[in-house]
Amino acid sequence: MLNALEVFTTVVFGVMVGVEFSVAFVINRILDALPGDSGQLGRAHGGRMLGAVMPVWYIASLVLVVVWAVAGRHRHGTGLAVAAGVLLLVSVIMSVLLLVPINNRGKTWTPENRPEDWKEQTNRWDRLHHVRVAVLIAAFALLVAALA
């Protein structure tokens, strides 16, 4: 049963990391290359859509990692799972304190109501998101190593 939990957790968390990586290095680059206001409108829509889904995914992933660490506390690799959980928690805290406030503003922007510094705010979100993705990749690597 623990093996199934470990695999399920790794898949759920791994797909989430893939989505975040894709947003950082594929989707946002595509949106930024669109003409006119299309990119900003696409980012606003993505902020609304992913802003609704990602909190649930992050918390579910964190809960799964905690359950894995508790259930497997006497097994080899549990320390790595705990370290992965700590990094995932860091990414959640970072999200709530730094990224969500920018996203909450950006998801309401239209070409008519966006602030003058909207590009600077978008660039700040991108930089912070890149750091978050790096933290998530490190956590995922630790989780995979815990399986070995």
Rank of each mutant, 00 (worst) to 15 (best):
W68K: 01
D32P: 02
G47T: 01
E20H: 09
S91D: 06
N28R: 14
P35E: 04
A52T: 12
G77P: 04
N28Y: 11
W57Q: 03
F13P: 01
L64A: 10
L41G: 07
R73D: 04
V131I: 14
R105K: 15
L99C: 06
Y58I: 14
V70P: 01
S61A: 10
K107Y: 08
Y58V: 13
G106A: 15
G77M: 00
F21C: 05
K107Q: 15
V90M: 04
A60F: 09
L98C: 05
H76I: 00
A84W: 01
R75N: 09
H130P: 00
W68P: 00
S38E: 14
V131D: 01
A52Q: 11
L128T: 01
G39V: 07
L98M: 14
A33L: 10
V56T: 13
D126Y: 06
G14S: 05
R105D: 13
V53M: 15
A83G: 00
G14C: 02
V65G: 00
G18N: 08
L98G: 07
A24N: 05
P101Q: 07
V66D: 02
G79M: 07
G46Y: 11
L62D: 00
G85V: 01
T78H: 03
R75S: 05
R75T: 07
L34N: 08
V70A: 07
L64H: 08
H130C: 11
R75L: 10
I27T: 15
V17Y: 03
V19S: 11
I27H: 06
A134T: 12
L99V: 06
M54G: 03
E120K: 15
M49L: 15
L62R: 02
H130R: 14
H76R: 09
M94K: 02
V82N: 01
D37M: 02
D37T: 13
R127M: 12
A60S: 13
V86G: 00
R43L: 13
V131W: 04
G106M: 15
N28M: 14
V67L: 02
D117T: 13
V19M: 13
P115V: 06
A83F: 03
R75K: 12
V67H: 01
W118D: 01
G18H: 07
T110H: 03
G14K: 00
D117P: 07
R105H: 11
G77C: 02
V90I: 12
R75E: 06
S22E: 08
M94L: 11
T108A: 13
R132I: 00
P101F: 02
A60M: 10
V82F: 01
F25R: 11
D126W: 09
A44W: 03
A69Q: 03
A84N: 04
G39R: 06
V70T: 04
W109H: 04
M54Q: 11
R132C: 04
G79F: 08
A83K: 00
G85Q: 02
V17L: 08
F13L: 04
V12A: 12
L88A: 06
P55W: 06
A71T: 10
W57V: 13
R29I: 08
V82I: 11
L98A: 08
A44S: 12
G14P: 00
Q121V: 10
G39E: 05
L80Y: 02
V131S: 03
A134Q: 09
P115L: 00
T78W: 04
R105L: 09
H45M: 11
L98R: 13
G79S: 05
K107S: 06
R127L: 14
V96Y: 09
Q40M: 15
R43T: 09
E116W: 07
I102Q: 11
D32V: 06
I30D: 05
R73P: 05
